[in-house]
Design a protein around this nucleic acid. Sequence first.
DNA 1: CCTACCGATCGGTAGG
DNA 2: CCTACCGATCGGTAGG
Lengths: 234, 234
Amino acid sequence: MSARRTSWADDPRLARLAHLPIEDPSSWPTRERILYAAGHLMATKGFHGATTRDIAEAVGIQQPSIFNHFANKTAIIATLFEYDQVIPAERLAAIARDGGSPGCQLYRYVEWQTAWYLDLPFDMRGLREETIVELELAEAQRAMRSFRRTLNRIIKTGVDSGQFAPEGHDFLYPALDALGWEACRMSRNLTPTAEHRRLREAATSFVLRATLTDPGSLAMVRDEAAAVAARVAD
Amino acid sequence: MSARRTSWADDPRLARLAHLPIEDPSSWPTRERILYAAGHLMATKGFHGATTRDIAEAVGIQQPSIFNHFANKTAIIATLFEYDQVIPAERLAAIARDGGSPGCQLYRYVEWQTAWYLDLPFDMRGLREETIVELELAEAQRAMRSFRRTLNRIIKTGVDSGQFAPEGHDFLYPALDALGWEACRMSRNLTPTAEHRRLREAATSFVLRATLTDPGSLAMVRDEAAAVAARVAD
DNA sequence: CCTACCGATCGGTAGG
DNA sequence: CCTACCGATCGGTAGG
């Protein structure tokens, strides 16, 4: 555990995941092994390309046995979207409620998001928003909209106050997605602790440089984020 | 035409696309209508989720008629990858050969890429690199690797010379992808000319702010890019 | 969690 | 570009 799971606080939905040894998925409960295999296969072949037989074979069970753990194939990806959309949207909303400057909020979210995707035992790169719409996943869709609304409010406040550069923010939302996928991709070849820390700094630096009017104020934003984090930890 | 197609120079591979009226795809030749429908459906449902019957229905022909224009379903997406990977990789290589500072090269590429995806009549958001690997599309794979090599060389030169910030460039490549997809997404709701120009500026601003050590030098980079573009145009 | 199985749909072919 | 069609594979069920 230790340096892993810095992003998890104590969300009860994560209890089932908290103690999975990431180095040995074959020792996990079947349900989590299905999610693991599905995440990997959907990342490489997409939702429709990853068949229930592929998934079952990777898990080491027969194809119909999957439906003892999930009602149907859609329920598998819906569970993955809980980790990919619902929890991140809640987290961004919580960070916004914690207050601080828009730059501080954005900093705290990017840092959390990077740790989140580095820590998660599942590969999330196959989870595209278009799939949420196609499969009409209501909960994920609500989360997606909530995330967008909160982010847009942070951006608007940042631009109005002059902390954020006046233009270019059309690309912030898709860029955050890309950063998450890249973190997923890299987590498979990284030893935790030191490299995770470096990547969190690289991600926050990338996003805030692109956003702040004065990138020289990044160090101040970092200090403010640490202060807010210490305050809300009480 | 006019403001559209600013990114096209006179590549013979684009001759078939150059005069398609984007406002009325139903008037295009069948081959291009298949590419248009396939791009849209694969963007929303993925390669495996977009069936040949879906595509044929959108085009208004019977499903087997597709195979009069393409040898198989893979050949359709391979053609789309020509526009999504091969041509962009060639363009980045050409820009690198034109010289100028690393920031200038990056600026020119982002500006070209944004115009490219805004101008293209097909939706490219379903074209994921994982699909290139899965389907073993050799040409697209070569282009992908060439693109990465060239970009890494630009980044390294930029960091070594001090023009680029020393960290955070792990995320530049995926961020460029995200910018391209966002341009595809936005092109469907934009009136050309003015809004395209604004988006090109937003994209270059976003990427170069994230990259440059001194974002205040963006105006200088912009001038350098204009000078190089004028020189190579001779 | 297994075996046996099913209706629907897939990409692609034959032949005009 | 069409109709007719095919073997393979899909997600999911029945019943233990």
